[in-house]
Design a protein around this nucleic acid. Structure first.
Lengths: 336, 336
DNA sequence: CTGAAAGCGCTTACAG
DNA sequence: CTGAAAGCGCTTACAG
């Protein structure tokens, strides 16, 4: 890469100090009362030489990089990708760039990522924290590094976050099933200590109880992320193809839903006749399933924008706490 | 953010110059013959103070940021997101970070993005270039900025790229339809001057010709990205629900396929009895459709990895040309 | 109105 | 074996 033109080149060409060039190019010619004539000469030279300021040098001086670090579970997951896009756009509106990393729900990986990005002096983080990532959160807090959690947070650990009201969202979903007349309602969720997922399960139990519906322990299943297919197959076998199958199924994430719907297809079960289905999050699969799937949609745009805005406030030194549990939308289709 | 500990802090604590600290921490104590005792004192102090080198300062000195700029059409598109993930992982293996931007297939936006990222001194680009982005490519070449194109390239403009053999991939897809006995085969592609898309259409025409099949002009349709739904609906109406419907449909991208399958669902057409379908790229929708969809799968992992490796070669000053047209895989399911 | 100089946190030839 | 010093490309208080 050719050496780029620097302030000094311009200064030399015009015959002034780099200070003046800096002032003019940063629009401070008024405050610093730079001569009109010189100012225009400088601007002209800058244009002629196609001057592009070196942001690295600026960053070293200012301590600001105008870069946000985004840590998600997996950028390839449509949920993460969608939110990444919104964050990108909102960041760009404020002249920020985004560097990302995927943690694979692994606190270790997330920690490494965080360290790497910190060394690159990003101005702040937007993080979808993995399970057991409390230590990271505390680290960031102790070091006064601006960050906003998205999607998840740790109830015992006050921090800025923008998330969903998972309890309410899930409750409404189950309530919908109940109102449609289903009595034997099963649920599949991830086996995870993450609060946002547990809230979904809690809502499921509470809704059944509130409406005096039967609630067998065995109707609420948990699957491991890292052996999703096997676990799903086994639990679906139990729930849908054994003794007394459930009438309806609450699938608590997009990935879970995709596997569930696949299973239903493979076994030629009819939806909603054999089993009604409600999903969580978004995936093209919901619309493409032969019976478009009712699902609980998160307000992605709001989450992303609010997170960026909150973060930029923090970066600007404005420590207003942001703790948002946004409302989901129940998108009713034909699957229940 | 608290001021971080710098080389100077360590130097002061140990009572040496920053030079020594730098040598030791960069593993040059042998070459520079730093005293064993001092070296270990320095390492200890670094650990005690939890020293983290400021990469910005390093970058300013070295001119390298260890950051790759990734420009895709839309990070929210599963294709882009998937490739982003692979690029992220491969980059991380080489201690590189990735900053991304979405161009929305808009050459202007892509140009702006490129300029912004260049000022942030990224070491090189991986770009899925938009239509009319030739100027950008030339700019990068003239300025000797390392870059590798992915997914698309400009045939008249030699550059490094890692892409698909779109002609072959599409040809095999259409051939598959032909071998299944379908005679009236329609196609829907984007209206675009992009070579990789045109190659798909060219292959379609050529395959029909090679097998002496009828080829009505009106069977090959083009849709605009920015009014995808409307265009798709209209063309599908013509192709599937009018006078003489086509028997099979080649849908030349994941987004096109999703809309196509939706339409088919809505109009209760049977696949493959009423219309056979073959798609391109990947989407959860293919497996979730009530008849899992035969599709042409790109070798995402290879594309991503090859692109990163080629780019790192360039960054390292190794100007070996990389121009790969990788082979796709025909994934045969039940839709044709 | 303008310039010389220090400094951001590193690296690295050079001198001793 | 070690240190003083210059320099990467900026910004900015300070002096005149």
């Amino acid at each position: 890469m050719k050496r780029k033109v620097s302030l000094k080149d311009i200064a030399q060409q015009v015959g002034v100090s780099t200070a003046l060039v800096s002032y003019v190019l940063n629009g401070q010619e008024k405050e610093k009362r730079v001569g009109e004539e010189i100012a225009s000469k400088i601007r002209e030279a800058a244009r002629a030489l196609n001057y592009q300021p070196n942001q690295i040098a600026k960053s070293l001086k200012s301590g600001k990089t105008h870069t946000i670090g985004l840590i998600v579970a997996d950028i390839a997951n449509p949920f993460s990708a969608h939110i990444a896009r919104i964050i990108e756009d909102e960041a760009k509106r404020h002249k920020y760039n985004v560097v990302f990393g995927s943690s694979d729900e692994n606190a270790e990986k997330a920690w490494d990522l965080m360290k790497v990005l910190l060394n690159r002096q990003i101005d702040g983080f937007i993080i979808a924290p993995a399970e057991h990532a409390e230590e990271q959160v505390r680290y960031l807090q102790e070091h006064h590094i601006p960050f906003v959690l998205i999607d998840r947070y740790f109830p015992g650990l006050p921090a800025n976050y923008v998330a969903l009201d998972n309890y309410k969202a899930a409750y409404e979903g189950v309530e919908h099933l109940i109102q449609k007349g289903y009595k034997h309602i099963g649920m599949i969720n991830f086996k995870s200590g993450l609060h946002h997922l547990q809230e979904r399960t809690r809502a499921y139990h509470q809704a059944l109880q509130d409406f005096n519906l039967p609630a067998a322990e065995s109707w609420c299943r948990e699957v491991n992320e890292d052996m999703l297919k096997e676990d799903m197959d086994q639990h679906l076998q139990d729930l849908l193809l054994s003794g007394q199958p459930v009438e309806a199924l609450f699938l608590a994430s997009n990935k879970i839903a995709i596997h569930g719907l696949k299973f239903i297809n493979e076994h030629k079960l009819r939806v909603p006749e054999d089993v009604a289905v409600i999903g969580f999050d978004e995936t093209d699969a919901y619309e493409l399933f032969y019976r478009p799937v009712t699902h609980i949609r998160q307000p992605m745009a709001e989450i992303g924008r609010a997170a960026v805005q909150a973060l930029l406030q923090l970066i600007a030194g404005n420590p207003e706490p942001t703790q948002l549990n946004l409302a989901a939308t129940l998108v009713v289709k034909e699957s229940c």
